[in-house]
Nucleic acid binder design. Structure first.
Lengths: 272, 272
DNA sequence: TAGTGGTCTAGACCACCGG
DNA sequence: CGGTGGTCTAGACCACTAA
């Protein structure tokens, strides 16, 4: 059934390694719905028999699927097909993504509150040295102090994203509430705007990479789930005012932008 | 030196598995520059001695780093520290990302042409059934035919991204050059605009995930490199006109958006 | 407690790369 | 050719989960 690796077929098929056959077969079965989201896969022992392979080989195949983000695994329990509910953030509309607060009008476009999920967030404020990369974006001297307002968001106790906003020292000196450890009721962007510091332009950067071990721990993600990173630098008329780095679990989040005239979108229909 | 797994320390440290110690140690050394971009790592045999571990255990640790995108590996050669040159695409400025063509003014913001790299692209046009997800975005019946204009871009023969644009049948019927197999000189968006079909709004979606095996082959990426996916739907005054899905190697590409008034950014300085 | 996955070993053979 | 990584096996012990 499953060809041995190494001994190459005469002419063309150049047999795939066994562990890849295992992965490909299971991947196809997941795609076909033989195993649906949340289902348990057969145990390693059963797969070993089915594919006539050693345990390590079966594990190597399963590991591949884990690293593709298709499976979850944890000690003592069967491999499980991942299921995804995706949160969509419209970055061109929403200035502050604030959970469980005024959802006036259009404040964010999520499927969270509309599906009985329970969002919450952890919040903290620190005085820290502005990290090098942020300092460049804020155009402040490397090593300068600044305020970090940090937030980690959860949905039903699943970590969803972390958000770190840095404010330069000159701004904090002029508007000290930025450094206070409470959530700013009206939103810090609004607070600044009310005090004459208006953000009239944004520079957004989007990128992806695999999490570091710390990030993986913080967002409780295993291998195989990439991060989606969104860095927004907010500008007043003459200089950068703040820099926010939001780190999302890539498997649970999409970001959208609406540009230009979208009157044709008013009948949104089944558009994602 | 390196604690055994299993036998738990009395009170707290709960020793890490050996393969993680291998990975963590090497990761730190890469971060510290002990091994720079492009450098070879010591061979598995040497690492086995250094960490006093079996070959499989060392391999497991190395595999972790590969899956984090830090290392490349291929048969017969040493593990190599990945090096990244990142291409930045400003999605709010550039309608068509066209390689090696009129770079009038600001047409794209890359470090490619400015560093002596050689870009090129493969191009093809097909008549295909519009895929389900694209059909939703184009608001056409699922299963309907449409034109697919496909492009794969390279930099110095490294696959960089693939781009697939779907046009609905009604548009192609009215403007048949969309279905012709040549590159449209002036750009297809321009071609349409000249014929009265102007795209006045865009809906962009950004997401990340690990590549499927096909995608990994097409972009020549190994495990540990996530994809960055950008889906742009272009709208005329009353309906969607085209849908473009661009699939980037996440390790080589960033996307940016400029929103609002960015006069403060004119002195771009060291801002990325 | 039985069954699952997590970690680890020792050794084998192979394919590929470079000198 | 020698050295590298790629694949695979057989078996061991452990930690965790669920019944």
């Amino acid at each position: 059934m499953y060809q041995q690796a190494g001994s190459v077929g005469q002419d063309e098929p150049m047999s795939k390694p066994l562990y890849r056959q295992v992965a490909d077969t299971l991947r196809a079965e997941i795609a076909d719905g033989v195993f649906g989201p949340g289902d348990d896969l057969p145990s390693e022992r059963e797969l070993r028999e089915r594919f006539d392979a050693s345990r390590n080989t079966v594990r190597q195949g399963l590991q591949l699927l884990v690293s593709e983000g298709l499976l979850n695994s944890s000690q003592g329990r069967a491999y499980q097909v991942r299921s995804h509910e995706i949160f969509v953030l419209n970055a061109s509309k929403f200035e502050n993504l604030q959970f469980s607060q005024r959802e006036d009008g259009d404040s964010y476009d999520n499927e969270v509150l509309h599906s009985g999920r329970q969002p919450h967030q952890e919040f903290r404020v620190e005085m820290v040295k502005v990290p090098q990369d942020i300092a460049e974006r804020l155009k402040v001297a490397p090593g300068e102090q600044g305020v970090l307002r940090f937030c980690r968001r959860f949905v039903d106790d699943t970590p969803w994203s972390t958000q770190a906003t840095h404010y330069p020292k000159w701004l904090v000196d002029a508007h000290p509430r930025l450094a206070e450890p409470d959530d700013i009721e009206e939103g810090s962007t609004r607070y600044l705007a009310d005090r004459g510091i208006e953000q009239i332009g944004y520079h957004d950067e989007l990128m992806t990479r695999m999490p570091t071990p710390e990030e993986a721990r913080e967002l409780q993600i295993g291998p195989g789930v990439p991060l989606l990173i969104w860095i927004r630098t907010g500008f007043s008329t003459d200089k950068p005012v703040r820099c926010t780095r939001t780190t999302f679990r890539g498997d649970l989040n999409h970001i959208t932008y609406d540009l230009g005239d979208l009157r044709a979108l008013t009948t949104r229909g089944d558009l994602h």
